[in-house]
Design a binder for these strands. Structure first.
Lengths: 159, 159
DNA sequence: CCGTATCCTCCACGATACTG
DNA sequence: CAGTATCGTGGAGGATACGG
């Protein structure tokens, strides 16, 4: 049988799960936050089959988390850009990152949130107390890095 | 083909997804944070088939997010309690809650994070700046409520 | 009340090949 | 480079019945 839809549940958590879609979508969003925009970049980074990447990309566009933007007319070339709805998903990724890093038992991960350009590590969870907005994940790399500072490592270990 | 495992990816986000398991697991964790502990409570609240509930519960126990605790010997009765690893997942649920509430287009949800005992609403994302620890979700109800204050509603709408 | 056993269905995902 | 087409599969999830 088809999986029961969470759509009718009166709970934002269930709604969110329903609307994001599938597991791959979350990793695609992660990549998008790092600045990935093109099909083959996603494909290579995720090691995902092109078929399923097409499906997930289309689904994310449909659901309003990504938007397709034509950047070349002949031949037609599209790139996939985060919408504000998609960017709003950053806190979820940050929370997942923190949990995954903290409970990566048996894994020797160099961990850190690193700005790709500057190489500077940031806290995985930083909320501006006044604006109540989380620091956006755009520009930060969610992948594990070998050169995370000891301080960052300690912060992550503490949660 | 079997879905590719995220286990070998060197990214805490992928690891987290792999270790949580399936979609139902996340809703089960949500319920557990509300204080649900027993099989039939989960089953009724989620409207999930008993077969799959058993599977997901066992999986969460295996993965160390829940622990089984016998509370009655004859007949044998178990309840499912969040471990610290499971409790650490609260920020993810809070972030999912916030995102889902904010982007519940076309849904008229009374929204709020409400303490079940006191009925007091809380911010969906509140991080203590000094301890850097998010307020635990235990004791708070993630379900949508009709009586969320206008202020809470506005906070949620702002993100 | 708390599950397990059995059987079934569907779809997310994969492999591969091919096109503008 | 950026996809689509085709075909196949495993496992998550479901229905139902049964048992301690």
């Amino acid at each position: 049988m088809k999986r029961k839809s969470f759509e009718k549940m009166d709970c934002p958590v269930a709604l969110a799960l329903e609307r994001v879609g599938e597991w791959w979508s979350i990793l695609i969003l992660r990549d998008a936050m790092q600045g990935y925009t093109r099909f083959d970049d996603f494909r290579q980074d995720l090691d995902i089959s092109p078929t399923i990447l097409t499906r997930r990309l289309n689904s994310l566009v449909e659901k309003g988390l990504l938007e397709r933007r034509r950047y070349n007319e002949r031949p037609p070339r599209d790139e996939y850009i985060l919408t504000s709805k998609g960017r709003d998903f950053a806190p979820v990724l940050i929370a997942l990152f923190a949990w995954g890093a903290r409970h990566a038992e048996g894994r020797k991960l160099g961990i850190g949130l690193v700005n790709k350009r500057t190489g500077v590590a940031a806290d995985p969870i930083v909320i501006d107390r006044h604006s109540r907005k989380p620091i956006t994940a755009v520009g930060y790399q969610f992948v594990a890095t070998k050169n995370a500072s000891a301080a960052t490592r300690r912060r992550l270990a503490r949660g």
